[in-house]
Amino acid sequence: MQFTAKFEYLDEIRDFVGDIARTGGFNDKDVYNIQLASDEAASNIIEHSYEGVSDGVLEISCGLKGGTITIILVDHGESFNPSEVPMPNLKADLSERKIGGLGLFLMRKLMDEVHYEADAKNNRNTLTLIKRKG
């Protein structure tokens, strides 16, 4: 599925992955968390990869295989290095709490696997989210 990389399509993106997760027999809690992780992934791409770009395209594919859901998000914007994204300090008090990096942190917590690949030659960034049932 192709989506315009704009925040107003997040609803459709969540519905798209949610329907497939439900078809795959994931329970309500897992469906919510898969939708949240996908939203955080798409939001990061829209906000960062396509920063200042109004007509970016976000391709999302979603597959089920033996109790595992795999969501692949492909964009053609700026790449990033996940290892350079600071982990949020969850123990920091209110005044020091930073919100940056929270999206990636949540993706990693909510899913079993998160992979990122930046193919600079073909200007293609691929973010893969994997969750196994149960």
Binding site: R14, Y32, Q35, L36, S43, L94, I99, L102, G103, L106
Partner: peptide, 19 residues
């Protein structure tokens, strides 16, 4: 029904200012 980290960010800013 649903809140992503974008909502958390709004709550955090308000908590900081209110406190």
């Amino acid at each position: 029904e649903y809140m992503s980290s974008a909502g958390f960010r709004a709550l955090l800013a308000a908590q900081r200012n209110s406190k």
